[in-house]
Simulated assay, not measured.
Amino acid sequence: MSKIVIPEGYKTPLSVYEMQRAIEFIKSNFQVNLGQALNLRRVSAPLFVDENSGLNDNLNGVERPVSFDIPDVGTTAQVVHSLAKWKRLALKKYEFNVGKGLFTDMNAIRRDEEVDNTHSIYVDQWDWEKVISREDRTEGYLRQTVRAIVGAVCETNDALQIAFPSLHTKLDREVYFVTTQELEDRWPDKTPKEREDAICREHHTVFLMQIGDNLKRSGKPHDGRAPDYDDWALNGDILMWNDVLQRSFEISSMGIRVDEDSMRYQLKKRGCEERSALPFHKLLLSGQLPLTIGGGIGQSRLCMLMIGTCHIGEVQASQWDKDTVDACQKAGILLL
């Protein structure tokens, strides 16, 4: 059954041809702005990894990766869910120093994703990771990095509106920082998603911190977060108010990554201590990987937000259920 919501009176903001030009403009401009803001260099990245490497992102632990055998190599590969762990290993192999980082185009298949206006089984994002010092593992450094990313987003949006004068998306550079526990304390009767909508309605650009550990009232996490890459005490999501959909809109999941102590705690908390024997985890727990901060920034999500489309299928090619296709056709919305 389709979960699509089409706002009353909605019309696609650009022609099909102009839409492609705008998407190209956003992607080429933003990656330059991001690289300059965080001192990142572009690298090549894998579409798939060995299933026994421990490098794939386990997401919430229930999603099934797309896997296939490689007869000539003698192994089974998994299409990545994200490059959260691979990037940290790459920083070590490519000999990046403190204060320098990498970014890459990450393309993934998440076949168990529940598709709607903002979710697709095809994921495209800028995955980035940066080497930091032990002294940088602080909330202050995290906030500084968030502000730099939001600045790069807003600069790209400003340039887009000069190149495409018919577009008028307004983005707020001022970031409001709040924890998931503070939201639960304020709105204990709302769902996590309702809390996000409520806070973004008040403060249009929000960084929602500390995602993954259990909240005090409900005893459940605000949202799922794998236990072996983000430090749950030093992570968060960048949310912006989407005026077209009239709701909060996640553009990035990010955070300071686990060190040895936080990984042990989080693996135990989620009952995943057996992962300690995987190659990536053994390197981290023995102190052989650099301390890092990193995240993913949705490419199609940014295009949706800046161009002002109501459905992610207007800015990326994917697969949709028949009800969604029929509803979009009826509304004059072209799904790529």
Rank of each mutant, 00 (worst) to 15 (best):
residue 73 V to P: 02
residue 190 K to F: 13
residue 221 P to R: 07
residue 2 S to V: 11
residue 174 E to I: 04
residue 254 M to Q: 03
residue 209 M to L: 03
residue 209 M to Q: 12
residue 236 G to R: 04
residue 28 S to E: 08
residue 119 H to A: 03
residue 244 V to I: 15
residue 288 Q to R: 15
residue 220 K to N: 01
residue 64 R to H: 15
residue 149 I to K: 00
residue 18 E to M: 06
residue 305 L to T: 05
residue 212 G to F: 07
residue 204 H to Y: 07
residue 65 P to Y: 15
residue 250 E to V: 02
residue 255 G to Q: 05
residue 297 I to K: 07
residue 280 F to G: 03
residue 156 T to V: 03
residue 256 I to Y: 00
residue 184 E to N: 01
residue 68 F to C: 05
residue 282 K to T: 13
residue 150 V to Q: 02
residue 160 L to Y: 09
residue 263 M to P: 00
residue 248 S to Y: 14
residue 193 K to G: 05
residue 294 G to C: 02
residue 204 H to W: 05
residue 91 L to P: 04
residue 23 I to D: 00
residue 90 A to S: 12
residue 105 D to K: 14
residue 30 F to S: 06
residue 25 F to R: 10
residue 115 V to M: 03
residue 60 N to L: 12
residue 228 D to T: 04
residue 244 V to F: 05
residue 185 D to Y: 08
residue 157 N to R: 09
residue 129 E to I: 08
residue 138 T to Y: 04
residue 230 D to G: 00
residue 103 F to R: 05
residue 329 Q to L: 12
residue 93 K to F: 05
residue 151 G to H: 07
residue 30 F to D: 03
residue 328 C to L: 11
residue 284 L to S: 03
residue 97 N to D: 14
residue 325 V to E: 07
residue 203 H to Y: 11
residue 274 E to R: 12
residue 15 S to G: 10
residue 67 S to A: 13
residue 209 M to V: 07
residue 110 R to F: 11
residue 294 G to Y: 01
residue 242 N to K: 09
residue 228 D to V: 04
residue 25 F to C: 12
residue 136 D to A: 13
residue 288 Q to Y: 00
residue 182 E to Y: 01
residue 12 T to K: 12
residue 88 R to I: 13
residue 75 T to W: 10
residue 297 I to A: 03
residue 142 L to C: 09
residue 248 S to F: 07
residue 78 Q to W: 14
residue 167 L to I: 14
residue 207 F to H: 01
residue 308 G to S: 07
residue 70 I to Y: 01
residue 324 T to K: 10
residue 192 P to V: 06
residue 133 S to Y: 12
residue 111 R to M: 15
residue 210 Q to V: 07
residue 265 Y to V: 08
residue 204 H to N: 04
residue 265 Y to H: 13
residue 124 D to A: 14
residue 224 G to E: 09
residue 87 K to W: 02
residue 293 I to H: 01
residue 264 R to Q: 10
residue 185 D to I: 06
residue 10 Y to M: 00
residue 3 K to D: 09
residue 100 K to V: 06
residue 327 A to G: 08
residue 75 T to D: 09
residue 244 V to S: 02
residue 298 G to R: 07
residue 239 L to E: 04
residue 312 I to R: 08
residue 325 V to R: 11
residue 229 Y to D: 11
residue 158 D to W: 00
residue 323 D to R: 08
residue 84 A to V: 12
residue 274 E to N: 09
residue 31 Q to C: 15
residue 47 L to N: 09
residue 307 I to A: 09
residue 265 Y to E: 05
residue 69 D to A: 14
residue 212 G to M: 10
residue 213 D to H: 12
residue 150 V to K: 02
residue 265 Y to C: 03
residue 150 V to A: 06
residue 134 R to F: 13
residue 127 D to E: 15
residue 229 Y to A: 05
residue 274 E to W: 14
residue 159 A to Y: 04
residue 133 S to D: 15
residue 34 L to T: 04
residue 9 G to Q: 12
residue 37 A to S: 15
residue 84 A to L: 13
residue 27 K to D: 14
residue 145 T to S: 01
